[in-house]
């Protein structure tokens, strides 16, 4: 499987990212390598990765799911400690585009 530059452009658009022409060329080549790597893994597993999910993967049973008990949330300052907050909110300047 290979990926085209058009597909990379579409993904960038969906992710609301813009790249230069040179970056797009570079990413297309890099994506190709990553996909080839995943393909190699896929081929080395009998039945493909789909098979891992169906047979090999660990499953959790209903009884082992998390019980519905409240634990304290983080203080607001902590939640906002890596961003510029405003009155307790995350704040984002809206893009002009």
């Amino acid at each position: 499987m290979t990926i085209s530059k058009t597909e990379i452009e579409k993904l960038a658009k969906l992710a609301k990212l813009s790249f230069s022409e040179e970056e797009l060329e570079r990413f297309t080549a890099e994506f190709d390598e990553i996909i080839a790597f995943a393909d190699t893994i896929n081929q080395s597993i009998e039945g493909g990765t789909e098979q891992i999910r169906n047979v090999g993967a660990r499953m959790v049973s209903f009884d082992d799911l998390r019980t519905d008990e409240v634990v304290p949330s983080l203080p607001n300052e902590k939640i906002l400690s890596n961003v510029e907050g405003y009155n307790g909110f995350f704040s984002v300047e809206r893009s002009k585009k």
Partner: peptide
């Protein structure tokens, strides 16, 4: 109407000061 959120133990209680029912 669960007590906690779907993937963490934060409360689902309505309202509250902004970003106070939050965790990583």
């Amino acid at each position: 109407a669960t007590k906690t959120k779907i993937f963490c133990g934060c409360t689902t209680e309505f309202g509250g000061e902004p970003n106070t029912h939050c965790c990583p």
